[in-house]
Design a protein around this nucleic acid. Structure first.
Lengths: 144, 144
DNA sequence: GATATATACTTGACTGTTCAAATATATATC
DNA sequence: GATATATATTTGAACAGTCAAGTATATATC
């Protein structure tokens, strides 16, 4: 069995580690009524200057398709965490905007997410973490 | 909006990068009739001394649940890439063993997977890749 | 104004995976 | 031997997300 390149090993391990880590986060964040992807969505929206995003832009930031974004946002709208906002100039576009309830949930979930991250990988053990984050950003990671 | 810890940023970016990367791999490997998870499964089985694994052990290596493993293996058995083997001593246990056809598919897919990895992240650009792989192994990545 | 092409988003149908329960078996204890 | 507990795997149902097609709108060209 020939050896794999380091790059391929990297991606295969990425797959496994992500699968396990996202289960951990989903389990912890579930107490706030959201998933890890919900959290990521609320976080990205909160980081926009006017706390809103086009759905196609959001899809790119979280690495899912536009239809995937529709599937995720629909229940979040029903829960009142986000609201849909139209674009005055382009009727094709709709924005997803953070609501007050959404901000509250995000803030509460932030502490849980930080604790979960610390549990999986204590920062004290995280050598060169900033470097890894940078590396993932180069690969398309959108959280800066 | 307070800043996130480096560790949390790491995991959030992991999520996004993995989502995009796995789509790339799935697209490319689809020409062999398998998915990235199929590939990972065949790879892990091939790396066992006797080319077989218990299903619970396989689940751990790929970061999915036992029922997820059952769902994935069933079509692979039908396709003839793997076969089920019983355990003589423990009737609860069944092994998944690589077949000749499975070995062939894995070898063909290896070239595609390497090319895909190189496309996403050229090894010449991959500074400290071995270090990142090591880091992911510490986090539970099972491809060494 | 008509037409062609592109873009944004949704939706029916589907795939991949999990959850919770079910089934079968193994082990430990009495 | 009976019983309790644990483990391995499967399965019905459900959830998360994609695919491909559909719908609506915008833009470019004639």
């Amino acid at each position: 069995m020939s050896s794999l390149s380091s790059t391929l090993k990297f991606f295969l391990n990425l797959n496994v580690v992500q699968s396990v880590a996202s289960k951990r986060f989903d389990t912890k964040l579930h107490s706030h009524g959201i998933s890890l992807n919900d959290f990521l969505i609320l976080y990205h929206i909160a980081n926009e200057p006017d706390e809103k995003l086009r759905r196609t832009d959001l899809a790119e930031k979280i690495g899912l398709t536009a239809s995937g974004v529709t599937r995720i946002l629909s229940p979040l709208e029903k829960l009142g965490f986000v609201k849909k906002e139209v674009n005055a100039r382009d009727a094709r576009v709709s924005y997803v905007k953070l609501s007050s309830a959404g901000k509250r949930i995000l803030n509460e979930a932030l502490a849980t997410a930080e604790a979960t991250a610390e549990q999986i990988l204590p920062e004290s053990k995280a050598k060169k973490m900033e470097e890894f984050v940078k590396f993932l950003n180069e690969l398309g990671g959108t959280v800066q």
